[in-house]
Design a protein around this nucleic acid. Structure first.
Lengths: 151, 151
DNA sequence: AAAATGTTGACTAGAATACTCGACTTTTCA
DNA sequence: TGAAAAGTCGAGTATTCTAGTCAACATTTT
């Protein structure tokens, strides 16, 4: 059930850019703060730009700048565009459903659907702003407190 | 955030064996019902046997038989042994924690921890019996009622 | 003895992951 | 005006993971 490095790194980069919202930040600086190599970040940042999250400026003192408001950047969406559906199985995916022969009577699909829903519930309710302010979904609803970690 | 075929197939096989609890079922029959090839099932069933979920009988009319009670087979546990931690990131894993340089001030870890907890919450509370009896919260409630188990 | 099973270990093709690299374009500024 | 500092783009690559296959063997039943 892993999330790939691309998704993780994209979020790291967005956090850096969100923290410096309004400023142009070079790939090098993002690299320093995220511990991701410059050449790998090139790929990821370019993709985020094409997806409309970032703007760029070339030349000396160039770099990337966050285009959207931090509260309008949805984490579930970022993960989906960078690494596909949140669902653990194609049969339970809403964004990219894949049929399965066993489906009519499958006893697993309800489970995968529930897992998908829980993951989507968490990630789709979380924004970049939430992460920046260390406000994760825990406080978003009382019925969610059941998940609170006891550490 | 995918689950691998091994985990899925293992659960399919366990469902077949759970449905016929007490009977010896050949790999061939399990293959027919799960749509998984015999040779791949060999691997998976053997592993499940070594993990204590199954017993086997060789020779004519041989096959596999469920060793534990269906209510004592925990789905989260099955997934973990067959494909590793539930956590989307090593930093948030409880069963296989991996350190990360960013950790002291990482703004993502709380999110990954929450995701881990929600997945674990669902899977660790579900047993093979639950799956066999279709006792999984189906309705995607407007809120998070989906988590409230009705039994 | 023959047939029907499970057991074991090795092997493999293909896909995905996690990058790297080089050549190019644009912008700034001395 | 030219050199340097950026982003852009396309291709390449090493490694790991996935999803199996396969052949030879061991055991049990009939």
């Amino acid at each position: 059930m892993k999330v790939s490095s691309k998704g993780e790194y994209a979020l790291r980069a967005l956090l850096v850019l969100g923290e410096l919202h309004g400023k142009v930040v070079s790939i090098q600086e993002i690299s320093d703060k995220t511990l991701v190599t410059v050449s790998y970040l090139e790929q990821i940042l370019l993709k985020l730009k094409k997806l409309g999250y970032l703007e760029s400026k070339r030349g000396t003192n160039g770099g990337y700048i966050l285009k959207r408001e931090t509260r309008d950047i949805n984490i579930g969406e970022v993960i989906r565009v960078l690494e596909g559906p949140l669902s653990p199985m194609g049969c339970a995916s809403i964004t990219k459903y894949e049929p399965c022969q066993l489906e009519p009577s499958c006893q697993l699909k309800p489970l995968w659907s529930l897992v998908r829903d829980t993951i989507a519930y968490v990630l789709d309710q979380t924004t970049l702003e939430d992460l920046l302010e260390n406000r994760i979904a825990l406080n978003k609803g009382d019925d969610f407190l059941a998940f609170k970690r006891t550490n």
